[in-house]
Design a protein around this nucleic acid. Sequence first.
DNA 1: CAAACAGTTTAGCCTTGGCTAACAATATTG
DNA 2: CAATATTGTTAGCCAAGGCTAAACTGTTTG
Lengths: 159, 159
Amino acid sequence: MTDSNPNASLTAPSIPGDALPPVEQHAQQYATVRNAHETELIEDYVELIGDLLAHRGEARAADIANRMAVSQATVSKMIRRLNELELVTSKPYRSLFLTEAGQKMAETSRARHDIVLHFLRALGVRDATARIDAEGMEHHVSDETLSIMQRFTEQQQKN
Amino acid sequence: MTDSNPNASLTAPSIPGDALPPVEQHAQQYATVRNAHETELIEDYVELIGDLLAHRGEARAADIANRMAVSQATVSKMIRRLNELELVTSKPYRSLFLTEAGQKMAETSRARHDIVLHFLRALGVRDATARIDAEGMEHHVSDETLSIMQRFTEQQQKN
DNA sequence: CAAACAGTTTAGCCTTGGCTAACAATATTG
DNA sequence: CAATATTGTTAGCCAAGGCTAAACTGTTTG
Ligand SMILES: [Mn+2]
Ligand SMILES: [Mn+2]
Ligand SMILES: [Mn+2]
Ligand SMILES: [Mn+2]
């Protein structure tokens, strides 16, 4: 269950670099990542649908397939899932729309995404790189880190 | 093509929300994330095996299962994959070892992980949070961003 | 208005990464 | 040294997220 060596500190050879974290803490790291992976694709879809609605007035399956570089079949299947989760409504062959819950998720995800993106730019990362990195990082940034990023970006802009 | 402006002043036109990126660029964002997801679990395993070898002298399947909070069956299956990829060698009921390729991957992953972790701490994120965030973020940080993070951390430590 | 085209859905396949249950091998200890 | 405890493997299940091919629906146009 726990580490099988209670006297690790006595027997461990001294190693440059950090020690291993306690088992429970270490396990928490990986569990949090697994958790994020369950929701991140959903968030990306909902966020993209919200963006398409905001900027284009409609969100069609084909647009999503193009933007994500994924087959239409894949998008269609995912839309069924989003429907079951009551995040979108869809009449066949019509634009998608977000439910209340969907809109809330889109806003939250968009806000988070923007904070990470603006932070990376404020750090000095080139725009194209920042966009790529933000797309992945956004799902793994805690609220604590997020607010620190936001503060940093604001500070940077004052100077 | 891209604005490589290190002192990012106002390159972005102010917004009713940023415009959508061009389709190809947008697609590249998602594709890069999908790509990272294919390798990140492998990297975490190899990195952890390297750490266990360095700090404990051996890396047993049971330790990995505990540290990752995952079943022994899951670890066993994964070890078969790592074997097929020629990243580890394993005799049944003995400690795992890393091949040359495995050691190289472990070093690279560990270095990247450390840069992200130290950066987050330098930013002011609490240690426990930084560790959790770094575990996920590390797989989505480009080389460009990574070297900026490293520079930032060094600067911070001088002050 | 029929044909062609574009968009959408469905069916069926695959890999990854989880799980539990049962079994096998090794290590510990009474 | 036999019994028990720990560790590792295998089998079989599942959900997610990809894919291609084929069918279906709606729109455009000759
Ligand atoms: Mn996003
Ligand atoms: Mn994303
Ligand atoms: Mn790592
Ligand atoms: Mn990781």
